[in-house]
Design a protein around this nucleic acid. Structure first.
Lengths: 210, 210
DNA sequence: TAATGAGTGTGACAAAAGTCACCAACATTG
DNA sequence: CAATGTTGGTGACTTTTGTCACACTCATTA
């Protein structure tokens, strides 16, 4: 697909002049599953719009845990790349493609103009902030108020929803890393969930029931 | 102080025309310590700028815990009031004045125009989002990766910094509520910190040493 | 096919955190 | 000053979570 096609499909609400300016100035970039889009301490030079694939945003722990925050999907923008790009600040989080992913890179130099001249862009940016803010609040809610069993249940539900599948291809270790706990804890809790009829466990994947 | 004086003092970077429009349209509102500025589920009708006092932002737990997120001080804006105001969404967090507090209320109807016409306003909004986003990331870091003793140490340090005093007028229960744990746990950890020479404990307050 | 490594199961134990019960010190107010 | 409520201290106990050790099953590949 061309840049124009992506924009037409994923951002139909943008006014025509905005689409034109994006088409003229954005560049398309490819990432393979596992590639990093953003790393702690890195300076952002562009605002990033996801147009294909899936990006995992996480906070990295001391021993390489990948504490899960949220996914970005086609049509989403990376709120942090907007913020960091605007202020030339370094990012505090990691963004990793979890499958073949394509993104539009918008040069930061353009941000001011877009915000001033295009109301649909401005609304899009605000909405992006709002959604990510809310995601972070959910994350905080979970770790602040809930025990591991509830957090795990919420996590699986969110995975099933975000990835739009009942077959969750996650190992126990991956889940443990995402929730910053140990594999054994996850294994035990999953067993309980299976006994309660909420999931079925297989090798290398979990079936989420209802 | 008048609205004009507050704006001149706390937002000197705003361009003159922006100051004028704010002076014409903002209203000053008073809160007493303990008053709520914002409650879960409430619709925002204005963007809020703090000009005097101190506001505590927190997430409310099931039994009334006030899980602490951050303080807003004079010169800060409430990021959530901007977001919610713009999108007419309801807020997920609580904001409470912890002392005599004055705020400027900017009608949401004005936000679009301000963002488009005044670059210093736009920068201010972006910077507000960025700072609050970062605060939330710190909160997540702490609860996700750290044990209670470290969280408590960080909490006390932050209080001393934000409130700009070594005399922290906090009861053990208040701290426990802010960190979503029990008073006993806090009492014990504080004792350890005192033995380690990091603090001194008195009735109703704690002295933070360096 | 033997060897290797990843994924998972599990029991035993340790550490951290939460709960309960009760006491004592202090402040406030009738 | 007596009564009451708030604040803080502490021991005993439970629950949750984390750690360690080891075993077993698969899949891959030398």
């Amino acid at each position: 697909m061309t840049i124009a096609e992506y924009i037409e499909r994923l951002f139909p609400q943008f006014e025509p002049a905005l689409k034109t300016i994006l088409i003229e100035n954005a560049t398309l970039r490819d990432f393979q599953g596992g590639d990093m889009l953003m790393q702690t301490g890195q300076n952002m030079r562009s605002t990033v719009l996801i147009v294909e694939g899936m990006v995992k945003l996480y906070r990295e722990g001391e021993d390489g845990q990948e504490f899960f925050m949220y996914y970005l999907q086609p049509g989403n923008a990376c709120a942090l790349s907007m913020i960091c790009a605007t202020k030339q600040e370094t990012s505090q989080v990691m963004a990793k493609a979890i499958e073949q992913t394509k993104v539009l890179m918008i040069p930061i130099a353009l941000m001011d103009k877009l915000m001033r001249d295009y109301r649909t862009w401005y609304y899009f940016v605000i909405e992006t902030y709002r959604m990510r803010f809310e995601e972070l609040l959910f994350v905080i809610d979970n770790i602040a108020f809930k025990a591991m069993d509830e957090r795990l249940a919420f996590y699986l539900k969110k995975q099933a929803g975000d990835l739009n599948t009942k077959e969750l291809h996650l190992t126990h270790s991956e889940i443990a890393s995402d929730l910053n706990t140990s594999r054994e804890v996850i294994s035990r809790l999953l067993k309980k969930m299976e006994q309660a009829g909420e999931i079925k466990m297989y090798r290398n994947y979990i079936e989420y029931l209802a």
